[in-house]
Design a protein around this nucleic acid. Structure first.
Lengths: 344, 344
DNA sequence: ACACCTTGCTAATCCGATTTAGCTGAACGG
DNA sequence: CCGTTCAGCTAAATCGGATTAGCAAGGTGT
């Protein structure tokens, strides 16, 4: 891409030293003796010429490209996935690394070919990411490589995982409910289900429900009912409408995803019930919409930025990677949809 | 990253030819004569050994890395920006290129340093992207380089731009309104304003308004009023509430962004007005939320995927780039919020 | 029979860095 | 005065390919 770049040979020539000396002076290595005078001259020459090392050339020798690859199933499906990338990117930048982004769209062949494309470019490591928490089997090309699993788990694959702490989030939801005084009329909408097509897709649902029920029980409360449905606005609307039509009068709704909450809001509104006056709502995810709903939604936030950041941090941390599961807390975003139950 | 890779020398050895012959056989070049027998043996050896060329090494000689860099102000601010990246990525992949993603967050120094990081890695070209349409001044490091401006304009910079066709979208909004029979009581909410902090940020607003008013006028209609406000849910809610409180009874609202529409929906609902029964709403952007609102929002879609795709296509198209502005159509998503005005 | 092409291949160089091996001159010790 | 040590540097090899220059064998034309 245009204009001959200044090379180290140019710098060496201008400083009146050999390329070897220039190299050592510039890299600041001390195992080869360079006089202060020479070093200064090299540094000055580099500065004057605006020298920048050719990372590609260096990589050929050093085997390190300062480049990380990210392979994901889908980047754009979930609207907040960008935060994952941003987290990874910023962590990379803090250590002078750059990020290749790829997306296989769930296609195994495409995935393999993308991993090859990354390896052909000598990436130092790969982040293998899923856009919702689930079990995966990374392509065989990644075996034995430096890999971190992001938002997914692979028991047979020797690599660390970074996932949201769904279980603790479930517990926190229950704690918030109890703290507000809710012990009766609590319904879970969305239940254990996540994505219908993916049997393993129920990690988030299961964990959230497990934590929720556990702390509720400890607090002497319990769920009045669990409604299993897909995690979407339409489903939330349909199920909550049905619930109300059946004569139930919930005091608190635990929606397993913000999209479900939005549907619940709509159903509640149509039935003339107010949030949180008549019914409290607590939710999971903290999508954009959560803060814009009226009333603003109290929800447990999926820590996408931190997920991406931590995955990259692990990769760039020196030393071998340990196959540990790192659970990132899901902070409670306390907003307006949760309040004390009205007596009666 | 582990395991010695098979090199071309290995392939040549196994095929019993020189590396030169292997190179020519593998690249399929015809300007050097290689017998069919030799070629076959090289190809077979490569296949047997699972040979993959080291792109980094090749780049050193050829100056082409099959790698494109993307520099943006913010990737995650707008929830649909992921589609831009996906479009660019897929276009890149169609031509066996990979994409570096970087984000400067509006910081000029960071931007320069990221561009350097890209150039140090010998990217073949750079996509300079903004997350909302505006005038920009790319960093000087990009002058003379192969660059495409994505979602932004820079008159003094010799490079093509790819932007949404906001003007035509405004015209299409007007056409949709007229086709539904609206000629009176049409209000624009959001007006020319876009982002308060950015004086150049009004391109989208200006163009949309210009197209809208032009076609309305041609159709013998006109706007009853234009309300200038920021493009956010809160603003939409506040302004529409105020409008109704002032005794106005709009028949159609043109919201300059979906977020504004959402606020308008809330205000309308609170006032007991139904969409589209009492008031029609047409909007711009087509964010996720648009299809999930009740009734689903009729809106002119920002063609993010195509924007990203076209930018990358231009870059990968052989030959020099021409400093032309490419306008990508914003398709009308006809949903339920626009209907004929009720008489009376 | 000799100059002249072709064909089919290889040796050597290059790309821009890093790194290893080795060389030179001064200081030092005895 | 001679061998040793050490500071300070350079030549050359290396990484994995692409590319240029050139060479040997066989065929052609005259």
């Amino acid at each position: 891409m245009s204009e001959r770049r200044v090379t180290m040979a140019d710098v060496a020539r201008r400083a009146g030293v050999s390329p070897t000396t220039a190299s050592f002076a510039l890299s600041g290595r001390t195992d080869m003796r360079i006089s202060d005078a020479s070093r200064e001259r090299v540094l000055a020459a580099a500065r004057d010429l605006g020298y920048r090392p050719n990372v590609t050339a260096r990589s050929l020798r050093t085997k390190s490209t300062q480049t990380i690859g990210l392979v994901s199933d889908r980047i754009t499906t979930t609207p907040f996935a960008g935060e994952v990338i941003r987290g990874a990117m910023e962590a990379a930048r803090e250590r002078d690394h750059l990020l290749f982004i790829t997306e296989a769209g769930g296609d195994r062949a495409a995935e393999s070919s993308l991993v090859h494309a990354l390896l052909d470019r000598q990436v130092d490591a790969v982040v293998y990411a899923s856009m919702f928490t689930r079990y995966v089997t990374p392509p065989k090309e990644l075996f034995g490589r430096r890999v971190v699993l992001l938002n997914c788990l692979a028991p047979d694959f020797d690599a660390p995982s970074v996932v949201p702490d769904e279980f603790e989030a479930g517990r926190d939801a229950a704690r918030a409910l109890l703290a507000a005084g809710h012990t009766e009329g609590i319904w879970a909408i969305g239940g254990h289900q996540a994505v219908p097509a993916t049997p393993e897709g129920i990690i988030a649902g299961n964990e959230r429900m497990r934590g929720l029920e556990e702390v509720l029980r400890e607090g002497g409360a319990r769920l009045e009912g669990v409604i299993e449905c897909d995690w979407d606005t339409l489903d939330g609307h349909r199920e909550v409408s049905a619930l109300l039509a059946a004569g139930h009068r919930p005091r608190a709704l635990v929606c397993l995803a913000d999209r479900v909450s939005f549907g619940a809001y709509q159903a509640l509104g149509e039935a003339g019930l107010s949030v949180p006056g008549d019914v409290s709502v607590i939710s999971f995810d903290d999508q954009d919409i959560a803060s814009v709903l009226r009333p603003a939604l109290t929800t447990l936030r999926l820590p996408h930025y931190r997920l991406g950041h931590l995955a990259m941090e692990l990769i760039l941390r020196p030393g071998p990677l340990e196959a540990v599961v790192h659970r990132v807390p899901m902070p409670l975003q306390s907003r307006a949809s949760l309040a004390a139950p009205t007596s009666g």
